[in-house]
């Protein structure tokens, strides 16, 4: 295992992040505050409680998930797409590194950034509302696994993308709708019965539900199912990446 190389990739990716630390830090703070103004104060004032939790607190896990998923996706997909775009990928391919090491470096960095932003949002949210964390270890586990799995997913998108439009396509057309419809801002119990069934096909429901359970102890779907979903998703992404590197798909001619 070439850990020096993993570190080199990880460090170089993190340098990019820290170069724009102001944006990286400020934008989630501002967007979280805006969500609180709109959903928490304006709309939330008309909603009493959801599953025994104030609406302001109820949306915190969903908000974190929303940002963490989109950030992990965009960071990881950009991270591997950029070297392809500017041609520096030649160096990764000609270096004595295994694909596992490349993935560890890029995905590790993307997941770290997403985790950082998730924590920033949690801290910002705590300034607006009281956010209890009933199962802190489970919370950390869900958060980290989401960061990692969506970074893996982002890595796949980055390898697949042939241009910047495609890079945006999946996050915009698939992931954002799934996250918004995945119960970020509402409980599934609030939906009409037929939609309660349909929404169970949305994988994001399981992730948000499990994550919310770690805060409030209540969930839309059983926690075990949520864990299974997140591990399943991580395994699926790893499998696809393994295949990508085995065949050299879109990377090595």
């Amino acid at each position: 295992m070439n850990f020096t190389a993993v570190w080199a990739i990880y460090y170089s990716e993190m340098v990019r992040f820290f170069r724009t630390i102001a944006q990286s830090f400020i934008s989630p703070v501002i967007s979280t505050s805006l969500y609180f103004v709109v959903f928490g104060a304006a709309i939330g004032s008309r909603i009493d409680q959801v599953e025994g939790v104030s609406y302001g607190a109820f949306i915190v896990p969903g908000l974190i998930m929303l940002s963490v998923m989109t950030q992990a996706l965009s960071n990881a997909s950009f991270g591997i797409y950029f070297p392809k775009f500017i041609g520096t990928i030649y160096e990764l391919l000609s270096a004595p590194v295994s694909f596992l090491e490349i993935v560890l470096g890029f995905v590790g960095a993307a997941a770290t950034k997403a985790l950082f932003i998730g924590v920033v949002i949690l801290v910002t949210a705590s300034m607006f509302v009281d956010v209890p964390v009933t199962h802190p270890w489970a919370m950390v586990l869900f958060l980290v696994l989401t960061c990692v799995s969506f970074s893996l997913f982002g890595f796949i998108i980055g390898v697949w993308a042939g241009n910047f439009e495609q890079l945006q396509l999946i996050p915009l057309l698939v992931v954002t709708p799934l996250v918004f419809l995945g119960g970020s801002f509402y409980s599934i119990a609030m939906l009409p019965p037929i939609w309660q069934k349909i929404t169970l096909f949305n994988p994001v429901v399981y992730l948000i539900s499990g994550f919310r359970w770690s805060f409030f102890g209540t969930a839309d779907v059983p926690v075990g199912l949520s864990l299974l979903a997140i591990f399943g998703f991580t395994a699926l992404c790893m499998g696809i990446i393994w295949w990508i590197f085995k065949t050299g798909w879109r990377i090595r001619a």
Binding site: T4, W7, R16, I86, A95
Partner: peptide
């Protein structure tokens, strides 16, 4: 393009272990 000369060169050394 955005990185410093010394950083891109140091990166290569690291990448080669």
């Amino acid at each position: 393009p955005f990185n410093k000369v010394i950083d891109v060169v140091t990166y290569s050394r690291g990448l080669f272990g």
